[in-house]
């Protein structure tokens, strides 16, 4: 179980290899890597920079809580959550979730659960800037709330 909140990039291949290194009980590893999209902003110009702000201390606590809840609901053998902060460019990796389990169903579901909860419970805020440096805070999406609610019980 590992949570990392960092400015630096990460290597998804190396993270996946590390998750199951030296073990023979893992039959399934699933992962999700989120990238910054260069979509047009509300003003029409493409996103040049995506700035990520977070709440140091609470961010790590929330991610650890989400990871622990996933491990309580599914037979998770190992998991990794990485989220970056600071200025990022379109195409940059922003978030990484990987889950190892004996079988695929638990690995798929737990990874999806972690991402859905991360999107609605981890204290990160995105601000997109165009090439001229005009910034705009990204609005929360109702579809993210609905995705998280389906796991409620």
């Amino acid at each position: 179980m590992a949570v990392r909140v960092q400015a630096a990039d990460f290597d998804p291949g190396a993270e996946l290899a590390a998750l199951s290194a030296g073990r023979t009980d893992i039959g399934a590893v699933t992962s999700f890597t989120g990238l910054v999209r260069g979509d047009p902003t509300a003003e029409g110009a493409p996103v040049a920079v995506m700035e990520l702000e977070h709440y140091p201390g609470m961010t790590e606590k929330q991610l650890e809580k989400i990871e622990a809840e996933a491990a309580a609901r599914w037979p998770v053998i190992a998991s990794t959550i990485i989220h970056r902060y600071g200025p990022l460019a379109p195409g940059d990796r922003i978030v990484f979730v990987a889950v190892a389990s004996a079988h695929r169903a638990a690995a798929f579901e737990a990874a999806e659960f972690i991402m859905d909860y991360l999107k609605t419970k981890a204290p990160f805020w995105k601000r997109e800037l165009n090439a001229a440096g005009d910034g705009r805070w990204v609005d929360a999406r109702e579809s993210d709330d609905q995705a998280a609610e389906r796991w409620a019980r």
């Binding site: 999107k119 805020w125 929360a140």
Partner: peptide, 10 residues
Amino acid sequence: VAFFPPVTGG
């Protein structure tokens, strides 16, 4: 105590 808008990470 912290105040903030709805979160938009991920």
